[in-house]
């Protein structure tokens, strides 16, 4: 169990394809959810603690549009903005920061070149470097997948989480591919195991469907990220936070 005195965070995540927010199930079947600036501003108003923008476009042209989207969202917000997807090197990270990111997350590039974690951490400080890890359960272990869940790496998720911390990551954003978009609840066991191994904040992602799921996972994770329940109006953030407070989980009201 993570110390309950620590204030937990609720983070709406916008998967962005160039300039629209989309959302899939188990990383597939994308549907359009809305405008990133409008959604981000609405979530801040509702009490979101920070916002994440993930670039899921694969083209160079799309990347440029995405950076423009980052800058539009950043200028509308008064809370922190995390940016991830497609960050391969120091230059990509720099472009994201210059566009208005307060922190960047790296995933595939960190697996390919773990030294990138250390490099970014030295330059920008660990607090601005998030390592994102996508895992699928296999028996009693979790396997790391990269390239948007398409390629298995052979890495063990828990061991990779520990290495990322040692290399200088300031936070981990761990997504269960099995749970993503299902609304069947977070993979609580995953975060219970990870939180015993690392001492940096862990953001849980994948599977949020109801307010109870947040209570379950925030016993072990420092923050919970979710997308479709917020986009589709299933859960209102203000209501969720009131519920968490009732359940004894400390949040900013």
């Amino acid at each position: 169990m993570r110390p309950l005195g620590i204030v937990r965070r609720i983070i709406p995540c916008l998967d962005v394809d160039a300039n629209v927010v989309v959302k899939g199930v188990n990383f597939e079947g994308l549907r359009i959810m809305g405008d990133p600036v409008e959604l981000a501003a609405r979530y801040e108003e509702e009490g979101a603690d920070e916002i994440f923008l993930l670039d899921i476009t694969a083209t160079i042209e799309g990347r440029k549009t995405f950076l423009k989207t980052v800058s539009n969202v950043a200028s509308a917000l008064n809370i922190p903005l995390g940016v991830g997807g497609g960050i391969r090197n120091l230059e990509d990270a720099d472009a994201a920061f210059k566009a208005g990111a307060d922190k960047v997350s790296i995933n595939t590039a960190a697996v390919k070149n773990p030294g990138l974690i250390t490099m970014l951490s030295r330059e920008y400080g660990a607090q601005s470097v998030v390592v994102a890890i996508d895992v699928k359960k296999q028996g009693n272990t979790w396997r790391v997948y990269v390239e948007g869940g398409k390629r298995e790496t052979g890495l063990d998720g828990i061991e990779w989480a520990k290495s990322a911390e040692d290399l200088g990551a300031g936070e981990l954003l761990i997504t269960s591919i099995d749970a993503d978009g299902t609304r069947a609840g977070y993979d609580v066991e995953l975060y219970r195991v990870v939180s015993k191994v690392v001492n940096i904040p862990v953001i849980a992602s994948g599977g949020a469907g109801g307010v109870k799921h947040f209570v379950e996972v925030l016993m072990y994770a420092d923050a919970a990220l979710a997308a479709s329940v917020f986009h589709m109006g299933v859960i209102n953030i203000q209501g969720l936070k009131a519920y968490l407070m009732e359940a004894g989980i400390k949040v900013r009201m």
């Binding site: 204030v7 937990r8 603690d49 809370i79 300031g170 936070e171 001492n199 940096i200 420092d222």
Partner: peptide, 28 residues
């Protein structure tokens, strides 16, 4: 510790009056 980095909202307790602070509050 308990977690390093310290990331997120936390309570600032005002112990003396200051021109830039309005008493206690949560900040990032």
């Amino acid at each position: 510790g308990p977690r390093v980095p310290h990331i997120g909202w936390d309570l600032v307790r005002s112990v003396r009056p200051c021109e830039i602070l309005d008493g206690n509050g949560y900040f990032y």
